[in-house]
């Protein structure tokens, strides 16, 4: 039995290697885990790119955006990565020294102007508090509304989760120096702080909390995939903070041409039409055929809030300290 299982183990570990048996050039793309799962965009992106590139596209999946950043930093200049997918603007400043300009000009459909020479957006979304319309008839219309309510929310920890960090930036962008006071007032509304998005969303779906920090597009999943129209995102008057997910070419890549082609491919219709119903985010470039009309039912927040990468990096530690002090009381 042991020997059989050892063989099974050997088999399982070599299966990944079998794909690279022939001599095609290999493009190594690092991304976060849910991107490459069978429900994410990964498999379709790989199939479509390999159909034209004459190459082997090899994904390496690493936790979430923050884990991805740590992994690239850990591998440093020896990294095998040619392209990295899935950092967001709260993380790119720290990663910038490892990346090279992408030289791709795309007609981006973002709610904000974009001119970063290193990082190219491939999707985006607004953070929002999602609720269940059967349990909550009149959702709060602002952070102050939420503070005055008796609702309970689940949020993610900014120290271990990218949406958690997004909320930190959202409050900072909307309230600036008032942010600590907002957090102190919000504290009684926060049921708990989870390590990641999955835990928070799971708690919300189990009915533990009235609202959860997620995205304005989360209800689109329930609507389109489950035909369930009971989930909605609350539109806040302060505006909503953006998450812009970007792709970048690693400076030390040994496949600069392939990497460049892949970056162009990421903003092409082939990928952009897949993004909405696999990653449940908005495409960075609207595909020619548009996107599933289910997305029309989603709220359209305004204004869109977003710090530049440099601002986000500078603000992170002080904002984190404010958050911790406010909630630890």
């Amino acid at each position: 039995m042991i020997r059989n299982s050892l063989m099974a183990l050997g088999l399982a570990t070599t299966m990944g290697a079998a794909a690279m048996a022939d001599d095609l050039p290999v493009l190594n793309v690092y991304t976060y885990d849910s991107f490459v799962s069978e429900w994410g965009p990964g498999p379709r992106v790989e199939q479509a790119f390999e159909a034209t590139c004459g190459c082997d596209l090899k994904f390496t999946a690493v936790g979430d955006g923050a884990a991805l950043l740590a992994r690239i930093q850990l591998e440093g200049e020896r990294t095998a990565a040619d392209v990295v997918l899935g950092l967001d603007t709260n993380l790119t400043a720290q990663a910038a020294p490892l990346f090279a300009p992408h030289d791709v000009s795309a007609d981006l459909d973002l709610p904000v102007a974009w001119d970063d020479p290193l990082f190219l957006p491939f999707d985006w979304g607004w953070f929002a508090f999602v609720y269940d319309t059967t349990r909550l008839a009149s959702p709060p219309r602002s952070f102050r509304d939420l503070i005055d309510s008796d609702l309970s929310v689940v949020i993610e920890d900014p120290r271990s989760s990218t949406p958690g960090l997004g909320l930190l930036m959202w409050v900072k962008a909307a309230y600036g120096d008032e942010a600590p006071a907002i957090w102190r007032a919000l504290a009684p509304r926060i049921l708990t702080v989870t390590p990641g998005w999955s835990e928070a969303y799971g708690l919300f779906l189990e009915g533990e909390a009235d609202m959860v920090l997620s995205y304005t597009t989360s209800p689109a999943y329930h609507l389109i995939a489950d035909n369930d129209a009971t989930k909605a995102a609350a539109r806040f008057d302060e505006g909503h903070y953006l998450q812009v997910e970007v792709a970048g070419i690693v400076a030390g890549t040994d496949q600069p041409d392939l990497a460049h082609r892949f970056m162009e491919f990421m903003v092409s219709d082939a990928v952009q039409s897949v993004i909405p119903e696999t990653n449940w985010m908005y495409p960075a470039v609207m595909p020619a055929d548009g996107i599933n009309p289910g997305f029309d039912a989603m709220i359209q927040p305004a204004p869109s809030l977003l710090f530049s990468a440099a601002e986000a990096e500078a603000l992170r530690d002080p904002a984190l300290a404010e958050w911790r002090d406010a909630l630890a009381q």
Partner: peptide, 20 residues
């Protein structure tokens, strides 16, 4: 690797894809 996960990892991938 993407195709080489264990069951707990697969479980997390399901959750991350909203498939609770």
């Amino acid at each position: 690797s993407p195709e080489g996960g264990t069951l707990p990892l697969a479980l997390y991938r399901l959750m991350a894809a909203y498939r609770m």
